[in-house]
Amino acid sequence: MKLFVCVNQVPDTETRVKVAQDGKTIDRSEINLILNPYDEFAVEAALQIKDKTASEVTFVSVGGDSNKEVIRKALAMGGDKGMLIKSDAVGDSLTVASSIAAALKDTGADIIFFGKQSIDYDSAATGTMVAEMLGLPSATVVVKLDLDPGARKITCEREIEGGRETVELTLPCVITAQKGLNDPRYPSLKGIMAAKSKPIQEIAAGPVEAFTEVVAMRKPPAKQPGRILGSDKSAVPELVRLLHEEAKVI
C-alpha cells in the first residue's frame, strides 16, 4: 500500500489567542506549535495499516520550514519519509488542497489520510477538496475503519448527529480521522532518533490564488462574569427562577 498522511502545524489548545497588529491574523509570538491533534489519529491509522500490510507511509505538509517539525514528529511515531510542499503564501483550504492534489497526483497513492480538521481555521475542508480534485471517493470524520486490502475496499463509520453512518468506498480514496478512531502511539526514543535520518523531500508549491480574504479578525465579545447565587443547595430555587423568568431558557 502507498499511504500518505497530510499533517498540519497549529497553535496548541492552551493558546490564548491575541489578534496581531494587522488586525487580520493572530499574534504568533509566544505560541507553542504542535502537530494538529486530529492528524495524530490519521498518522496512527496509516501506521496500523503498515503494521499489518507492507506499506510505505509518507507524511505531507504544506507551509514553511517549521512544518518540518510536525513531519518529524509523525516520523518519530513511524512511517518512512516526509514531503514538505513549500509555500509562504497566505492561503485557504482550497489553495492548500490544490497544492496537495498537485503533489500527490501521480504518486499512485492508495489512501490519503487527513485529520478531520485543523484546530486553527477549523474549516474541515482540505481533505474533501483534495479528494474532489483527484477524483477520489472520501469518507470524513471517521471513527472506525476496516480495510480489505485484497478487495481494495474500505468500510468505515463516520460520526453524524446522534449516530453514525457506515460508508463503503473503494481504493484509492481519502479518509479524514476523528478522535476515537484509535489511540495514537507515543514516539519511542528509538523512533525519535530514527526520524532524524528519514528523508524529507522538499518541493515548491505552484502559484495559487486564494478566493477568500480575511478582512478583519477580532476577539469575540467578552462575557461579563455573572452572579454567584450561593454556596449550597439553598441557591437552587433562585437559579431555577432566573433560568425560567429572566433567561427564559427553561
Partner: peptide, 8 residues
C-alpha cells in the same frame, strides 16, 4: 477564541 470577517 477569535472571529474573522471574510469575503469571497
Amino acid at each position: 477564541k477569535a472571529l474573522i470577517d471574510l469575503v469571497i
